[in-house]
Amino acid sequence: TTEYTFTDDEEARRAIEELKKRGLTFRYEKHGTTWRVRVD
Score class of each variant (00 low, 15 high):
7 T>S: 07
29 E>H: 06
21 K>R: 13
18 E>Y: 13
36 R>P: 02
33 T>E: 13
33 T>Y: 07
22 R>K: 11
35 W>F: 04
23 G>S: 03
5 T>N: 05
30 K>T: 04
14 R>H: 09
8 D>Y: 03
18 E>L: 10
20 K>A: 08
19 L>D: 00
25 T>V: 12
10 E>P: 03
36 R>G: 01
25 T>P: 08
5 T>D: 04
4 Y>M: 09
26 F>G: 02
6 F>V: 00
35 W>C: 12
24 L>W: 05
18 E>W: 14
20 K>M: 12
31 H>M: 12
7 T>V: 06
5 T>H: 07
37 V>P: 02
15 A>V: 14
27 R>N: 12
21 K>Q: 08
24 L>F: 10
11 E>V: 08
12 A>D: 01
28 Y>D: 02
36 R>F: 15
30 K>M: 05
6 F>P: 01
31 H>E: 13
23 G>N: 05
9 D>H: 08
14 R>N: 10
1 T>V: 14
31 H>D: 14
39 V>P: 02
15 A>K: 09
38 R>N: 08
35 W>L: 05
28 Y>G: 02
3 E>G: 03
2 T>D: 06
40 D>T: 13
35 W>P: 01
6 F>Q: 01
39 V>H: 02
26 F>M: 03
19 L>G: 00
37 V>L: 07
37 V>A: 00
23 G>Y: 03
17 E>Q: 10
33 T>H: 08
34 T>D: 05
25 T>I: 12
11 E>P: 03
4 Y>F: 11
27 R>L: 09
16 I>F: 05
5 T>Y: 14
40 D>E: 13
13 R>N: 07
29 E>Q: 06
18 E>S: 10
23 G>T: 01
24 L>H: 06
32 G>P: 00
21 K>W: 04
22 R>A: 12
36 R>I: 15
5 T>M: 10
15 A>Q: 05
4 Y>P: 00
40 D>M: 14
38 R>L: 15
17 E>N: 10
29 E>Y: 13
30 K>V: 08
8 D>N: 13
13 R>G: 06
13 R>D: 04
31 H>T: 13
15 A>I: 10
40 D>V: 14
5 T>A: 05
15 A>N: 04
18 E>M: 10
26 F>V: 15
6 F>L: 02
32 G>Q: 03
9 D>I: 12
26 F>L: 07
17 E>P: 00
16 I>E: 01
1 T>W: 15
35 W>V: 09
23 G>A: 03
32 G>K: 03
23 G>E: 03
22 R>M: 13
27 R>K: 10
10 E>F: 10
9 D>W: 15
13 R>M: 14
15 A>R: 04
34 T>G: 06
13 R>Y: 12
30 K>R: 09
35 W>G: 02
25 T>K: 12
3 E>V: 14
38 R>D: 05
14 R>F: 07
34 T>V: 14
27 R>Q: 13
13 R>L: 13
22 R>Q: 11
3 E>Q: 05
28 Y>A: 13
15 A>F: 15
6 F>G: 02
13 R>V: 07
19 L>N: 01
19 L>P: 00
12 A>F: 15
17 E>M: 10
3 E>L: 12
26 F>R: 00
14 R>D: 06
20 K>S: 08
11 E>Q: 11
39 V>K: 00
32 G>I: 01
11 E>M: 10
